[in-house]
């Protein structure tokens, strides 16, 4: 198994520590998309702080601004206004330095179907300035971590959905990132594959990597996240620990027992269970 806890001294060439600070810090983050006739305000002023070592969940209905926020934090989208710092580095000011410190696994497992799993990981290592030998060794470690050794030399197009997600996760870890961004990491997976991904996320976090994940599965957020934020209409509408958010709702509503995270979500977004159908899903662990 990969020893992620002892990797700080083995970070890739070009890596320079950014000093101690919050893993993710966003202030008044805004993203507008310009259309021909109108401007779409996808994110309208998000303030966020994720402390180093946390698993932070970012929830919201479809179109709420989750993925847009994550894409700004991972340098994939330009920032209309506001500031964001990831691993202590200004995202807009030095995007390459941010890219050296983060791992990204997006909603669609971003893989090249014509390569083998091993080739993909070695290539990713080479892109992060590892030598050929280092990249090969790192690929071997990661294939073991996500239990894909047997499929390592098969083309990715033959992988199942769960295997692709695990490989995507492994490719995001090649350079031992400080902060790992996961965009809906378990969407479309069967329950067994989902549990495997949860285990991987816990293990990665336990070894010191901060995890920022978006999800539509409230059970997932409840199981995995130390803290979470709910975004709706481009604004953060709730933020706190799962237990704290439930307890706050219980006190405010004078409920006899603790509400579920679903209730918190529905309360925060002003949705009813009927209206939320299709927006958010529950899954059993």
């Amino acid at each position: 198994m990969d020893d992620l806890g002892s990797v700080v001294a083995r970070r890739p060439p070009g890596y320079e520590p950014a000093g101690t600070s919050a893993a993710v810090q966003a202030e008044a983050l805004v993203k507008h998309y310009g259309g021909r006739t109108s401007v779409i305000e996808a994110v309208r002023g998000v303030d966020l702080t994720v402390e180093a070592g946390e698993v932070f969940g970012f929830l919201g209905p479809n179109g709420a601004g989750k993925s847009t926020t994550m894409r700004m934090l991972t340098t994939l989208l330009s920032i209309t206004s506001g500031t964001a710092r990831v691993a202590g580095v200004d995202v807009a000011g030095d995007p390459d330095a941010v890219r050296r410190r983060i791992g990204v696994a997006l909603q669609e497992a971003g893989l090249d179907p014509r390569q083998t799993g091993r080739e993909l990981l070695v290539l990713q290592g080479r892109l992060f300035d590892l030598s050929a030998a280092e990249a090969a060794a790192r690929a071997e470690e990661l294939l073991a971590l996500v239990e894909l050794e047997e499929a390592a030399d098969r083309c990715i197009k033959g992988y199942s959905g769960g295997m692709k997600r695990r490989l995507d996760l492994a490719s995001a870890l090649v350079h031992r990132p400080e902060v790992l961004f996961l965009d809906e990491p378990t969407t479309g997976l069967d329950p067994a594959s989902r549990l495997t991904i949860w285990d991987e996320v816990r293990r990665i976090n336990k070894r010191g990597t901060t995890v920022f994940l978006t999800t539509q599965y409230l059970e997932e957020a409840d199981q995995l996240c130390d803290r979470l934020a709910i975004i709706d209409g481009g604004l953060i509408v709730r933020e706190g620990t799962p237990a704290g958010l439930k307890s706050e709702l219980r006190e405010r509503r004078g409920l006899a027992s603790d509400p579920t995270l679903d209730d918190v979500f529905l309360d925060a977004t002003g949705r009813t269970r009927d209206r939320a159908a299709g927006d958010v899903q529950e899954v059993a662990p």
Partner: peptide, 16 residues
């Protein structure tokens, strides 16, 4: 295909 499949974003998120 890279753009549609998300691999292009993977490359863009790397310090390449």
């Amino acid at each position: 295909e890279d753009i549609e499949g998300g691999y292009f974003d993977k490359l863009r998120a790397s310090p390449v």
